[in-house]
Every structure is written in C-alpha cells, then in structure tokens.
Design a protein around this nucleic acid. Structure first.
Lengths: 237, 237
DNA sequence: GTCTATATCATGATAGAC
DNA sequence: GTCTATCATGATATAGAC
C-alpha cells in the first residue's frame, strides 16, 4: 500500500516464497530460504513486508485475488449466456473449482510448482489468515451459492451451503495429492505436472453427485452453520 | 517396542502432545509445551521417543490404530449381517467415516479437544508420516473398497477408488471446520463440542451422492492413479 | 528412569553504514 | 533501498549427577 518502489525485488520475494510455501508450508520455510532463493538480502523481506506473517498474508492474497477474479469472470459469462437464469450446475461447479485446480497444477512460466493455496489455508493454525480470507471468500462464495440456488431449486439452501464446503474439501484434498505427486521443486521439466483436466474429469461428477444428492430425513435444523453466509445465516466460528 | 517401563509418563506425553497437536499442529508445538503440559521433564520425551519426529509419529499411530480397529469391526458386523454380500453402501460409508468424525469430535474423558488426525496428515510437509500411514491405511481402505465394489456393481472400480479419496477430503475438511469452531483448549465444559451426528447427517448423503454419481464420457483411462492400491492398480506417487 | 544444566544451532528481527 | 553484522529468543538434543 505505502511504498511500492522497486517492485522487482518485492515480486522476487513473493515468487520465491510462493514456491517454497507450496513445497514445505509457511511454517517450515525460513526467511533465509526465501531470500536466498530469491537472491535478495535477508533484510529485504522485513523492509518490504514488515514481518514474515505479513509476507505470508501477501503471498496468499495475491493468488486468491487472481483466482476469484477469474472465477467471477467465468460465472458472469455463464449467467449472461443463459437465456433464463438457470445455468447448468455442472458449469457453475466448473467455474469455481476449475480455476482452482488449473492454478494449482499449472507449471508457472520458468518456475515449477504452484501453491495449492486454499488447501494450505485449511490447515493453517494461524487464525489471522483464515479471518482475512473469510471476507473476500464470502463474496464470491455468495455469488456461486446464489447461482446454484437458482440452478437447483429443489435443493434446500442449507444443503447448498453445507455441500459447498464439502466440495471445497474434496477438491483441496485432491489437489494436494496431485501436487505432492509432482514432487521435487528444483527439476527443470515444466510440463510434467499432472493434467488438471484429468483431475477435473474425475472430480466434477463426484461434486455434482454430492451436491444434488437427496436430503435425508428432516435435518433442516441448522445445528451448527458453516461460515459462508448467505442472506439469512450467520457465522458461528 | 523396546523399553515400556513406567508407561505413565509415556502416556502423559502422548496425551499432552495429542491435545497440543490438535490445537496448534505439530510444527507449532514445542517439546517444552508438551512436557510442561504433561508435567514431565523435558528430557523424558527424548528418552521415551528418541526425537520429536518419532513422538509425532507415535501420536498419530496410536489413534490411527484405534480408528482402524473400530472401522474393521463395524464392517465385519455389517458383512456378516447381510445375507448376501451386498451391504447398504450408506452403511459402509458410515462405518468408515463415522468413527473418524466421532473420534474427532469426541470430548475425551477429562481433557477436551481431540485430534482430527487424518486432516492433519493431509497437510503435513513431512513425507515420512504419509509413507508410514500409507501401508496400514491401504489395508483397511482395500477392505472398504472391495465392500463398496460388491455393494455397487455398476460403479467402475477406478471411480470407487478415486471417489474414496474425494470422500476423505470432504470429511477431513468438514472435521477441521467443526473442530476449529470448538476452539479454546483449556475450557472445562466437556460437552459443548459439536454433535458428530449432526455433521454426519449432513455429510453422509453428500458422500453417497458423489460416490454413486454417473461417470461421464469415457474417462476410463487411469491418467494418474490415487494411492490406494486394489488388486490391479499401482501407486504412482 | 528421572532430572538439571547445558551445548549447539536456526530463527525472526533490528541497527546502522553506505 | 540495500547491505553487513548482530541481537535475543526459542528450538532440539545430550551429558552427566542422582
């Protein structure tokens, strides 16, 4: 926000941190690893980001913004293309999870290994990260939840919200498995990463099947509600 | 294996480590925190477990063993109760994921907060843990995969295997969300934890719907195979 | 078996010259 | 803005008395 002069080293730090975080996780990545990988001075990270926590935050934020922008663009196109407002639910799911999977599996330009960010967000013990993302994630999640509601009028809203979380979990886990099989951050071949489309072909039918599953006996009571707020429901954690 | 004398302090360490790991993750838990919580000496953990890594391993192993034993017992009962070998698939899913969810949400005796172990296993950056669990997990996963195959003859085996992983991811994520909302490790009320049955009532239909979803166009080629090996398929990562 | 005391090391952050 | 040098802290692990 304040002093973006010499964006070069700043971005070098972000890129290096992103690679290393993807491989080892933020906790197991030292600032010295980051700065030596980025070939910048150790103090540069404190100068540009203030602290390691702020750097972690910035790394995640950068990718999350790009991801959500792409997701919203796709959904916009889908909704304007549909004559009525009933978009194919499979396309909605693809619009949300497709960019995530593709980003996660992408071999980035010269560097390899990209961050399965939301996967790591899941398991971070630092609550600050989660809180920071909650706001922005809710905006796009609400868009998608509303679109799914219109597309699947027979599914109760509470089920849509719950199952959206379940879908996220299934996808995140699948991404991690796919990423880990890529291994070895230092290898040079940029195209050996697992094909994201193969994973999506397996994943989307599962997600759609789960999303559209019949609700059992009367479990309409919102025992404890997930965190994506639609219009009515609050956020307990 | 070698020297189980004075199991008291050993178990105290395991219990304390389990609580703290669940709250902060193994990486963000120091041995000093563990030993002071367990009210044992710092050196005791090195004496009993050799290193911190071995302790982490032991903590996970203990719970995983109990979990798998329970799962197999339930599945055994289901299969002997069924006249033919076709068990209700919903019951099979419950047999696998029910104990996991219940364990994760359980308020343990005097202590509160239990570990969502497989959830953390997902995100551990240490490959050793994963490798260690792979063998034992495969044994029970194979049992369940075979049972699901008999129960759902129309679903291709490859889909069963893939979707088993997706189910694991959805469950792990849901557990983490439920656990995190429990918060605060030191509070005294043992029964305030989220009801596991409420979560299961939401989760099982989703899992069943995803598992039984129709397979789309011909994606029978095993592009990259998940790690649970049945009879025919290998394990690429 | 258990403890005190300590060795050894890596981390995040900062001070101050340039 | 960038660097060197350093601080203070907390980590795991070990040596050796009891």
């Amino acid at each position: 926000m304040a002093t973006p002069r010499s964006a070069s080293t700043r971005d070098a730090i972000l890129d290096a941190a992103e690679r290393l975080f993807a491989e080892y996780g933020p906790d197991n990545t030292s600032m010295r690893q980051i700065t030596s990988t980025a070939q910048v001075n150790l103090s540069a990270v404190n100068y540009h980001f203030g602290s390691k926590d702020t750097l972690v935050q910035a790394v995640f934020q950068r990718r999350l913004d790009a991801l959500n922008t792409e997701r919203i663009e796709i959904l916009d196109r889908l909704e304007t293309a549909a004559t009525d407002q009933r978009v194919d639910p499979s396309a909605i799911i693809e619009a949300y999870f497709g960019p995530l999977v593709r980003h996660a599996c992408k071999a980035d330009a010269q560097r390899r290994a990209f961050m399965p960010l939301q996967s790591l967000t899941m398991s971070d013990p630092n609550g600050a990260l989660r809180a920071l993302f909650a706001a922005e994630r809710n905006v796009v999640a609400q868009r998608f939840t509303r679109s799914l509601l219109r597309s699947l009028p027979t599914i109760p809203e509470a089920d849509i919200v719950w199952r959206f979380h379940f879908m996220l979990g299934a996808t995140a886990y699948a991404i991690m498995r796919a990423e880990r099989s890529g291994r070895a951050i230092d290898q040079a071949d940029d195209e050996a990463s697992p094909r994201p489309q193969d994973l999506l072909d397996r994943l989307i039918p599962f997600l759609l099947g789960g999303l559209c599953a019949p609700s059992p006996r009367g479990v309409t009571g919102n025992a404890f509600e997930p965190t994506i707020a639609t219009s009515t429901s609050g956020t307990p954690p």
